[in-house]
Design a protein around this nucleic acid. Structure first.
Length: 166
DNA sequence: CGCCTGATTGTTCGA
DNA sequence: TCGAACAATCAGGCG
């Protein structure tokens, strides 16, 4: 029951290409990390993936932000549930059930998360450049900061009534 | 004993 | 532009 897939076929969208994502279900994502054999994304023969000093993990999408909160709630109502997939499914269903306005709440948080990620990525990129030239690592200079103007902003209570009704 | 998978969707980077 | 992988979680399952 993939559901969603061909349910109503309201719009093709990029679903066609997304179908590839379904493939990863069989086990692809970690396939690379699983064995070091030629499973590296970069077709590099040796030392392809240089362990990054500070890998900037991707910021959680709005869905994940919502999940973080949802997981807690779900566990409270289902303390016996010990399947991560259970929360995932439940969360996914609810996520789609949520209104655009409500999702926007999480989106706003996710957006902020992304902003921070940009900074982290900037420093990360810089580091890579620094290392590429000289073996000098840990240069305080990297802490230049892009533009520290607004830090913690009231990312809450930012309702945006954007009813997107079809 | 320890790594990996499962399931959700979104996001992000690379080619 | 498209594709593919990875982000958290948590316990179980297999090598």
């Amino acid at each position: 029951m993939k559901s969603a897939k061909g349910k109503g076929a309201l719009k093709k969208d990029t679903k066609e290409a997304l179908k590839a994502v379904d493939d990863r279900k069989l086990g692809k994502r970690k396939a690379a990390a699983k064995t070091d054999k030629g499973s590296n994304r970069p077709a590099k023969k040796e030392k392809a993936a240089a362990k990054d000093p500070n890998k900037p993990k991707r910021p959680p999408s709005a869905f994940f932000v919502f999940l973080e909160d949802f997981r807690k709630t779900y566990k409270q109502e289902h303390p016996n549930v010990k399947a991560v997939s259970a929360v995932g499914k439940a969360g996914g269903e609810k996520w789609k059930s949520m209104s655009a306005a409500e999702k926007a709440t999480y989106e706003a948080k996710a957006a902020k998360r992304k902003s921070e990620y940009e900074k982290t990525m900037a420093a990360y990129n810089k580091k890579q450049e620094s290392m590429a030239d000289d073996g000098d690592e840990e240069s305080d200079r990297s802490r230049s900061e892009v533009h520290d103007d607004d830090e913690e902003e009231s990312a809450e209570e930012e309702e945006d009534e954007d009813e997107d009704d079809d």
